[in-house]
Design a protein around this nucleic acid. Structure first.
Lengths: 197, 197, 197, 197
DNA sequence: AATGAATGAGACTTCATTCAT
DNA sequence: CATGAATGAAGTCTCATTCAT
């Protein structure tokens, strides 16, 4: 039942953000008012639980996909590609992440670690990890916002990856090598609510 | 009186976003409840008026600063530098823009025109105007969000400009030439509420 | 309007005690829900305001009636008689006081001062001020409870005064002297809601 | 199980009065929600059962203690002393009785019978049985309320008995004779939850 | 215009009770 | 019987908006 509520909550938060009200959730999950409160203390608690759920889900999906890459350029570039691929496939997740501006702590750590690693290995060349992080996260966010407005091609996604890598000072050859990698089939995320593509 | 309400509303929207309530505004402007409704039909109307006001203000401030540059790299790079300089000086405006996700239509047009112009003149090299726009806007947004959390140096601002220009495929020499330009003193924006720097 | 709410609240508290709900008050005062909250933060606040109001009212009514007596037996005995007379006249006040168990701080102080004074002057003879106070207050309370169930004669009221004074060790002659005093007409209490007698 | 719930309910009612909620009871009795309703139709039914239980308990304890006295002054005076002794020993029972204002019908009958008997035998001298009853019950109630606030000495209890008897018109010698009787050890009441003294 | 009391729809949360296992 | 999740009526409080002065 808790999962049922969470599953129903994701598209609601995606659609209405923090303005979502209890009635939205109980209508979407088709449960009674009291049932909601048997599982979540408040809508705020539901939001936090949903974010936590997404966070855990990310560990299983995105991080898993890039675990095999040693090259930071691969990790960052493929991470961006997988992330945006997933955003295309799961519009509710995409809209949720965009609306709530949620960057999970784990993702944050992963990104900064990869950026620092790439700098240390001279794969990347930039002056500030903070700026590099803001460029990467900001570009991806803005692309996701675009996705909530209209469909975006996979080629567009690859261009985003190119742009991000180039901004980090990656060599053009390496940029193309990363983008040339096949994406294959993504493990279906556990929380996926609606899928297209 | 209308200006008085608008001036008071900006920091309120900046602090509370769309969750701001009418009491916040009338307390900040020190007016009666009914007076508010003599000037604005609703809080939504106030929000729109505030956004419109910022938009007009931008024409007078940011656009005016870069009007003299013919080179698209200068226009984009100096635009970013002036924009972020202003965000540093006017935390309320910065927070408002970040919270409400407002990109004025005029700014949007300006950015796309400069990007297309740079591409046509081979000052920039990128595959997609949309991606370039998302990179530029996303990076600036994320930097502004950072500013709402803690102070950011002018050097940081310049690094952001460098990163954006590099991602657009500007030559390293031109990037440095843009960043080397002095910023001078900014015309005080009409709506500025609090200033530091 | 505040007075209107208070005036309407008294019989509601009298009838339902602390279980009274907002709807009871707004129906009784014939006002909108929001109007209530413009004047009182909560029902608890209304209860406290009502008690405070009664307390202030008591200063003007009961205390005023016994201000002229120097003899503690007169003060206590006439106080009891006036108090219970008033309880007869104002059933709402009576029921309120019984249900909420409210002994105003001022009344409390008055009673203890008179008891101590009577002891010092050898008008009263008892071992403990606490016990004397409990006897006086308890007997009056129980009589008021009786009044909420059925009508009580003025003769009954006088018998209560006799009993209380006797328990305090007052001489029989003085007891009768106190009860023999005429009560006269009571100043109409400001908050009186319903009157009989 | 029914007894287990009752035993757990007493201190809950004592602490929260009628505002006690079902969760309080099931938590205190460490049972499931449904189990409660297998034994009591509602919380109101639990309250009534608890009151009935106390009533029956009183027959076994207080009434038993004074059964041997023929003199109404002894019956009333020793009844008060035993009653208040018990209130000291069993704070939960004391608080329950004070909060819920419960006067068992059996106690009521007992008191009135003793008062009438004393009047008939000229042991007591008062004008009205009702007033005498109110004085007795009120004084004891108020003393019990005092006990819920702070500890009270056995000497205080005896002073209460003295005061009550004196108010009933008992001769001073008889008052002292009653109070001089030893109280001995009280039969442990079946429902006693916590004991001090 | 400015005022601010009144309004009432709407949101949140609690809690007594039911019911299938 | 014991269990505990589900239920929904009932209550609290907020806040955008109206309106008479």
């Amino acid at each position: 039942m808790r999962t049922r509520i969470l599953r129903a909550a994701l598209p609601i938060f995606a659609a209405h953000g923090e303005r979502a009200v209890i009635d939205d959730f109980i209508r979407a999950a088709d449960i009674a008012r009291g049932t909601f409160y048997n599982h979540f203390r408040s809508t705020q608690a539901l939001l936090e639980a949903t974010q936590q759920w997404l966070e855990n889900d990310l560990i299983l999906s995105i991080q898993g996909e890039i675990a095999g890459f040693a090259n930071p350029a691969d990790r960052v570039g493929m991470g961006v590609r997988w992330w945006l691929r997933r955003a295309r496939q799961d519009p509710a997740w995409c809209a949720f992440t965009v609306r709530l501006r949620h960057h999970g702590e784990l993702v944050e750590r992963q990104v900064r670690a990869d950026l620092r690693d790439g700098l240390a290995r001279s794969v990347f060349h930039f002056a500030s990890v903070d700026v590099a992080r803001d460029q990467l996260v900001g570009t991806v966010q803005e692309t996701m916002y675009r996705m909530t407005q209209r469909a975006v091609s996979l080629r567009h996604v690859d261009d985003v990856a190119r742009t991000v890598l180039r901004a980090l000072g990656t060599s053009p050859a390496m940029v193309e090598a990363v983008v040339a990698r096949p994406l294959g089939r993504m493990r279906r995320p556990a929380l996926s609510v609606a899928v297209r593509d």
